[in-house]
Design a protein around this nucleic acid. Sequence first.
RNA 1: CGGGGCAUAGCGCAGCCCGGUAGCGCGGAAGUUUUGGGUACUUCAGGUCGCAGGUUCGAAUCCUGCUGCCCCGACCA
Length: 473
Amino acid sequence: MGGVSGHLPGRPPSRRRLDSPPQPSSRVKMRLSRYFLPILRETPKEAEIVSHRLMLRAGMIRQEAAGIYAWLPFGLRALAKITQIVREEQDRSGALELLMPTIQSADLWRESGRYDDYGKEMLRIKDRHERDMLFGPTNEEMITEIFRAYVRSYKDLPLNLYHIQWKFRDEVRPRFGVMRSREFLMKDAYSFDLDAEGARHSYNKMFVAYLRTFSRLGLTAIPMVAETGPIGGKLSHEFIILASTGESEVYCHKDYLSFAPPSETIDFDDKAAVQAIVDRWTSLYAATSEKHDAAAFAALPEAARVSARGIEVGHIFYFGTKYSEPMKALVSGPDGKEHAVHGGSYGIGPTRLAAALIEANHDEAGMIWPEAVAPFKIGLANLKIGDSATDAACGRIYAALEKAGVDTLYDDRDERPGAKFATLDLIGLPHQVLVGPRSLAEGKVEVKERRSGARELVSVEDAIRRFGGKTEN
RNA sequence: CGGGGCAUAGCGCAGCCCGGUAGCGCGGAAGUUUUGGGUACUUCAGGUCGCAGGUUCGAAUCCUGCUGCCCCGACCA
C-alpha cells in the first residue's frame, strides 16, 4: 500500500504494544510483598461461572458497574499477553494496526443507516453542544470513513486495518463476568478489496490467522458456519472453543479436535495455499445450535460425532458493499470505472478470551495458565521468610531468572506455607519453585508443575537452568 | 424487555416477622504460638444498616418512592 502519502515524522511503524490498550507493565519480575494481588479467600456470591469466580478471587478484575470491569495488575498482565499474541498474528497476516476512538459521531452511523437499526444496545450520548455521539459498539462506519478519505485506486488494495480497543454494547443482561460484559476489549480488523474474489482471499487470510492465534493461545478453536447478525453480510464463521461450561450447544466432527494448526511459515499471499487451509477446516461438519442440521449430523459415524458446549471467541464476516455503497467508499478499478469496495470485518474479544482460557484451563484449586499467556511463568515461594538459607536460595533463583528475562513472581510475604501454596495454585502460574528449610537441608528445592501437579526435588542450580537462567559458576 | 430476588464492616452472612440505638465468621492491625497444604489463642480497629421521604417518644426493623446489583427467560462477541 504505497499510494497513501503523509508519513508522520519521527514515528516509525511500531509493533510496540504501548500504542493501544491494554498497556501492560514491562516488568518481568515482581515481589509479591510489593505487588497488588488482592486475593479473596471466599467466593463473592454474584459469580456464577468458574472463570468469573476465579478472576475475582485472584484479584484480576473488579466490577465497577453491571458488565463493566476494572482490570487489576494481575489480570492486565494476562490480558496483555493475549493481545500481544493476537497482534503478532494479525501483523503476520499482513494486517496493519491503527487505533480508532471509543466515542463516535452519530452522523457517521446515519450515513450507513445503522444509527436507527442498531437499537438500544448502542449507548447514545450527547456532548456539551447537544451533538449526538455514541460509545462505539463496532467500527465499520469509522474505518470506512477513514478508508474513503484516502484511498482512491485499486492499486492501494488489498488493505486490512485493525485495532484493539474498548467497545461498549449495552447488553440487556450482562453476566458471567468479563465473558459477557457491556464494556469489552475487541480486536477488530477490516479488509478492503476491489471485488468479491479479492475479498474472499482477505477473508481466508483472517481465517488462517485466527486458527494460528487460538492455537498459540493453547486453545482448540473450531470454525463454524454462523449467522451474520446485525453486521450483515454473506459469509461468516464463528470460532468456537469447547468447554463444559460453554454458553451454547455445538456439534462437530471429531477430527477437528486433532487438526494441526497452520504453520508459522505460511505464505499469506499464496491464494491457493491459504484457500486449501480454509477448505480443509471447513470440510467437516461443524455448527452451533442455531445452524445445526440434525440430519447431516446424524449421518456422521457415531464415533465421529462430538456434541458439546462451546464458547465463541472469534467471528469473521464478509459483507461485500454493505458499507462502501451508502458511504461512498469508491476506488477506481483497472477498467477506469469506480467500484464500491468489498469489505469484511473480523473480531476477537481478548477480555472474553481471558475468561474463556480460564474456563478451559482450571481445576479445584484454581486457574492453570497455558505458558503462552501466563501473567508470570514462574511462581517462586519462600516457605520460611527470615531463614537465612531459604532467603539466600530464593535470592539466587530470583536474580538468575530476572537476569534471564523470565517472568517471575516471588512470594516473599511473611505467610504460612499453606497460604503460599493455596495462593500459587489459585493464580495458576505454570511452574512453581518451592523453597523451604526441609528440602534445602539436602540442598534441594521443589519444582512443581501446576497443571499435572508433578513435583520434583532438584538443586538450586538445576532449578535455575531448567527455566532458562544461567548459574554463576 | 418480561418474571423473581437481594441491598447490614473489605468478603460471606445473622438481626427485620414481634420497633428500644447492631452482631458472627473470614479478612485487616498488634501480640503470643506454630513452621511444608489457608495453625491456634488474645487484644484492637472497622458500619451515615443503599438513598429520600413518611409513621412513631424512638426505625436496620413498619409504610411509600427511588437507585443499584443478582438470578431465570428472550437477546448477544
